[in-house]
Each structure stands twice: as C-alpha cells, then as structure tokens.
Simulated scan of single mutants.
Amino acid sequence: MRIAFYGSSLLSAYWNGAATYYRGLLRELAARGYQTTFYEPDAFDRQSHRDIDPPDWARVMVYPATETAARAVIARAAEADVVVKASGVGVFDDLLLEGVMAAARPQAVKIFWDVDAAATLTELRHGPELPLRRMLPGLDLVLTYGGGPPVIAGYQTLGARACRPIYNALDPETHHPVAAEAGFAGDLNFLANRLPDRETRMERFFLEPAARLPERRFLLGGAGWDDKPMPSNVRRLGHVGTADHNAVNCSALAVLNVARDSMADVGFSPATRVFEAAGAGACLITDAWEGVELFLRPGDEVLVARDGQEVAEQLAALTPPRARAIGEAARRRVLSEHTYARRGDEVDALLRREVAAKRERSLA
C-alpha cells in the first residue's frame, strides 16, 4: 500500500519535535508492507541540521519552499492509496491540505494527521473560514499525536467522521540506555526548544527549581534559549541532535518533561521526550497533566509535579538508587505497552479497515 505523507521533516528534528514520532511510525508501517513517500519542504534551516540520512524504509522528497514546488509535489498525491497531510508543515499548509486532498484518487484514504491537536482545535473553533474546518467532513480520518477523549469529541463536534489518537511511543533501537557522559552530567536535565506556549511553564517547572536549589546542576538543551535570563547553575547546550538524546537522558539524576500550554490543558498528550527518557531508563519528572497514569504510574514509574516547588522538593529528596528504580520501572512499562511496534499495529488496522470500507462503498 502506497502512502503519500506531507509533513514538516523526516530527516531533521531541528525545530521539529514530531520527527522521531514520524520515524517510529513510518518505520513500523514499512515493516508491514507500506511504501511511504515523505514530502518535506526545504525550510527553517532544517536540511542543514539533518540528524539522519535518508532511510531505507521511506522515500524522502525534499522540495524548495516555493509555491511552484509545493504544487508539483501536490500532484504526486494521485499516485497514493493513502494520502496524509500533517499539521505544522510550516509553509503552504492550507495550499497543501486543499491540494493533496483534491489530487487524491476517489478510492484513496484521506487523512489529516494532527501533531498539535489542542492548538488546532482552538484555531478551528475561532476560525469557521479555515480550509481544514470546511474540509473535515470529507476526510476519512483525523489521527492525532495525543489528546484523548477531549480531542476526539472536539474533532467530531466540528464534523470529523472519525478521530483516533495515535500516541507517541518508544523506538527501542534508537532510544535506550547508554553510558553516562561527563559533558551532559546534571541533577536535572531538560530538552525542549523555546516556544511561546511552553515558556511560562518552563519558567515555573525548570527555572524556579533551579533558583530554589542553587547548589544543584541544571542542564538545558534546545534551540532558542540563548538570550533567556537564567540562574547561574543552569548550563545551556543549544540544539541537541537526536544522536545525543540517550546520553543526555542517562547522564542526569533526573530529566524533566514540560508540556506545552495547550497539551497540558487538554491532557492525554505525552510528549515524545516522555517515552525517549523512559526508554533510556531515566528517572522522569513531569509536570502534571490529566491522563499521565495511562502511560506511567506516578510515584513508581514517573514523578509528577504540580509546580516548581514540587519539582524542587522531589529533586532534593531523590537519591541515585531511587532514581534508578524509577527509571528501570518506566523502561519496563514502555517496552511492554508503549512501543512504535504497537502503534504501528494500530495504524495498520485502521488503514486496512478504511481501505476495505472505501472499496465496499465504491461497489455499492
């Protein structure tokens, strides 16, 4: 089965947190017989920050970030059995959405794949003129990065035929325990790019604990933080490629996850970092969001904090043996229940069901 997938980038995780999500899922679909062509624009300096070479489990077509080039790749949607437009491509999103769905063959399965569903739903509720709002009833599926029951209900209220969360997960071949590295040593390590809808929560859950615990070492990786005032015990790494994520996760007493505002408000939206850290056997401290217990058990497999004071208290009380026990328990849980192999089974079943349903409707 051929998939035409229009997304931000498969080759680069630079300012592109969805990259490892796409990789994990598409690799698993390839193992199930799918042939994916991933169309990504040469935008936001991502191609000069590639962190993987073109893989053998997907064909990647990089096109110039121009309208002419976008229209050229849009036409290729007619070749596919499944056409996917992901949210957040960053250039020509509306043009791509309208174009690829119009170019798709009548019998092709048409999917909008939302990697920031809570924020998208807010835009759609306040923008009845948006192309996606108008097109939702004509799409076969909306798949989302997370969001649980609130996101499902939100999309169905706006006219989607069906909405299904396909949660982030672990690829144990890429994220796993490694030896600690002195250059990444810290008491609390945090990987996140600077985004407007995360910055206030980052201040509360990372900078405030750093100020409360001046004797502890805090390590911050991610792009965009260069001019952000920070306590002197915070060390900035800048952009950290995915090849170093395991070492960052394995070199700290604990690692931090901070949800973006919209995902924290809706809940049921574990970030990729949650599963990557757990897969490396790291002790994870996460800000509180509804549904966390569906993925990791608070207190035993993850530490949950409601504010910066609780982060500081948990970090101050954390011993290396307890941190190892929590990290090992988290790794066992995600290997058992939250791998991309399991997510691949979900998507495979959904696609086969949709293809069969469209075939039956065409024969009726």
Rank of each mutant, 00 (worst) to 15 (best):
91 V>K: 05
88 G>E: 12
85 K>T: 06
107 Q>P: 07
164 R>I: 14
106 P>V: 03
118 A>H: 07
93 D>I: 04
94 D>M: 11
143 L>E: 01
106 P>E: 08
113 W>E: 01
127 G>S: 14
178 V>N: 01
91 V>Q: 04
92 F>V: 12
103 A>N: 08
117 A>L: 11
141 L>S: 02
126 H>Q: 09
179 A>C: 09
158 L>Y: 00
133 R>P: 02
104 A>T: 06
97 L>S: 01
160 A>R: 11
115 V>A: 13
152 I>V: 15
129 E>K: 12
111 I>K: 00
129 E>S: 14
88 G>T: 13
159 G>Q: 04
86 A>E: 04
158 L>V: 12
120 T>C: 08
106 P>W: 09
101 M>A: 00
143 L>H: 03
91 V>N: 08
162 A>E: 11
158 L>S: 02
150 P>K: 05
96 L>W: 01
128 P>L: 12
84 V>L: 04
152 I>W: 04
107 Q>A: 10
94 D>T: 11
158 L>I: 11
118 A>Y: 12
149 P>L: 12
120 T>F: 07
156 Q>W: 07
146 G>R: 03
105 R>N: 13
130 L>E: 12
150 P>S: 06
102 A>L: 10
147 G>R: 03
123 E>V: 14
99 G>I: 08
167 Y>H: 06
114 D>M: 08
95 L>V: 07
84 V>I: 08
90 G>S: 14
125 R>W: 07
123 E>P: 13
174 T>A: 13
166 I>L: 10
122 T>V: 12
148 G>P: 00
144 T>M: 02
145 Y>W: 15
97 L>E: 01
150 P>C: 04
151 V>R: 00
90 G>R: 09
138 G>A: 05
99 G>L: 09
165 P>N: 07
120 T>L: 05
85 K>Q: 14
160 A>D: 01
178 V>S: 00
132 L>Q: 02
84 V>N: 07
177 P>I: 06
160 A>W: 13
154 G>M: 07
98 E>D: 09
179 A>S: 10
113 W>C: 05
124 L>H: 14
133 R>N: 10
155 Y>A: 01
102 A>D: 10
112 F>I: 05
132 L>R: 03
170 L>N: 03
85 K>G: 00
124 L>W: 06
111 I>E: 02
165 P>Y: 04
165 P>T: 09
120 T>K: 04
168 N>S: 15
102 A>M: 11
175 H>Y: 15
127 G>H: 15
160 A>N: 07
100 V>T: 07
100 V>A: 12
156 Q>M: 10
99 G>H: 12
172 P>Q: 05
119 A>D: 15
118 A>G: 05
91 V>P: 03
152 I>N: 02
133 R>Q: 09
90 G>W: 08
114 D>W: 07
176 H>E: 10
158 L>C: 03
156 Q>P: 02
109 V>I: 06
89 V>L: 12
166 I>N: 03
177 P>Q: 05
104 A>Y: 04
161 R>Y: 06
104 A>G: 03
93 D>S: 08
165 P>V: 14
149 P>G: 12
108 A>G: 05
93 D>H: 09
176 H>G: 08
180 A>M: 12
93 D>E: 13
121 L>E: 00
107 Q>S: 15
124 L>I: 14
151 V>E: 00
177 P>H: 06
85 K>Y: 11
93 D>W: 05
171 D>A: 10
118 A>V: 05
